[in-house]
Simulated scan of single mutants.
Amino acid sequence: MRKLLFVCLLINVFVQGRAQELNCTVTINSEQVSQTNQQVFKTLERSLNDFVNKNKWTNRVYKENERVNAQMFITITEYESDRFKGNIQIQSSRPVYNTSYESSVFNYKDNQFDFQYIEFQPLVFNENVFESNLVGVISYYVYIILGLDADTFSLEGGTDFYRKAQNIVTQAQGGSYTGWSQSSDRSRFELVDNLLSNTYKEYRIAMYNYHRKGLDIMADNNSTGKQIIAGTMKLFETMINRRPNAFLIQTFFDAKSEEIRNIFSDGPKVDIVKLKNTLNKIAPLYSSTWNDITY
């Protein structure tokens, strides 16, 4: 009996130590498609959930509580035979130290998503060959999610993940699918290229400072945490001065605008006038949100 218990404990430790990297929900919306048989969409949804959550994406060891929380919402706008067209919305978050709060890290909509899929077709990722645009796009965003999450916990911790995503982009260049081209505006190429570019180095420093040095200490020292987050906004100002309308800055505030408003609308004061001026300069699309900071 003791031997059996010991074996069970070992298995439990092994399973927890080998947990996959993502805790991701994939949802397929096919309401815009005139298709009476919805089974293919349900099968695709189940297959994608298994593909994302059961695949081992890295050699790193993740504990169960370290899995990255994420969602992928795929809206199908056109469907004929085995061809699908639509968009994909990707969201991810990470826990804040000493709280039950989940902070949004990535909130991005990719409108260039077309692929071929036959029901019950196995989804297999091969990092050396680009065989499926469906697998390629999903795998690309898995590595972007993992990279951004790692960047919030250690300075430039996501580099290896971005390299994996960049490799997928390189392999996709020879195909005819949209969203990968170097010449396209705000493409998958541009996103990962910017993340790895020294031109936008402040972005990754800001990701680390905002989350690890700012949010993660707010439960114990709210004032210092807020000051660090306010100071982090100046890094984006440096980026704007070098590259106006930088793509990465928009991706940051698409995920963070509501959170920033809430942080600075309560608790210890900072120089709100100065902060608003900075925010309106670096993220003018969210001026109405910044105007709601009234503390």
Rank of each mutant, 00 (worst) to 15 (best):
N87V: 05
Q16K: 11
L275H: 05
N291G: 05
T232R: 05
D216T: 04
T289M: 10
Y101N: 02
V135M: 07
N194V: 00
L44Q: 10
Q171T: 02
Q116T: 12
V61G: 04
L48G: 07
A283Q: 06
M207S: 14
S187G: 08
S257M: 02
V135A: 07
N209C: 00
L215D: 03
Q182L: 15
V192N: 05
N69H: 07
I28R: 09
Q116M: 14
L248F: 06
N209Y: 08
S183W: 10
C24D: 03
E131L: 13
K85V: 13
Y203A: 03
S183V: 09
L5C: 11
A283Y: 06
L9N: 03
K213W: 00
E119T: 15
S183Q: 12
T278M: 07
Q35P: 02
K54R: 13
A172V: 07
P284N: 06
A172S: 12
Q32E: 13
A19L: 08
D149K: 12
S103A: 15
K54A: 05
N69A: 08
K42N: 13
E66Y: 06
P244D: 08
R188D: 06
G157I: 10
A219I: 03
V68H: 01
D149G: 08
F264T: 05
Q121V: 01
S287N: 09
R243M: 00
D216S: 02
S34Q: 13
Q171D: 03
I145T: 11
R163A: 05
N198M: 14
N111C: 04
S223G: 01
I138D: 04
N221W: 06
K213L: 11
L48W: 05
L10F: 15
R242H: 07
V142K: 00
L195N: 08
F264M: 08
A283L: 04
A219K: 10
T178N: 14
R261S: 04
I228V: 15
I263Q: 01
L279S: 06
I118K: 15
T27S: 12
L155W: 03
R204H: 02
S287E: 10
Y140C: 00
T199K: 12
N65A: 06
E259W: 02
P122M: 08
M1S: 13
Y200I: 00
S47I: 00
T43R: 08
G17S: 11
N53E: 12
S92H: 10
I205G: 00
I293D: 01
Q166D: 13
C8W: 01
T251G: 01
N37Y: 03
G267P: 06
D220S: 14
R94V: 11
T159M: 09
N245Q: 13
R188G: 02
T289A: 08
R243C: 00
K269P: 01
Y286R: 08
N53R: 07
G231W: 01
Y140H: 04
F161L: 08
L48H: 05
I11E: 09
K56W: 07
D266K: 15
F264K: 01
T99L: 04
F14T: 13
G179V: 09
I88A: 09
A165R: 02
N107F: 11
V15P: 00
S103Y: 03
Q32A: 08
K109G: 02
P95G: 09
N59E: 12
F153R: 11
D271W: 03
T224D: 13
L48R: 07
I240F: 12
K63L: 15
R94S: 14
P244I: 04
E119Q: 15
G267Q: 08
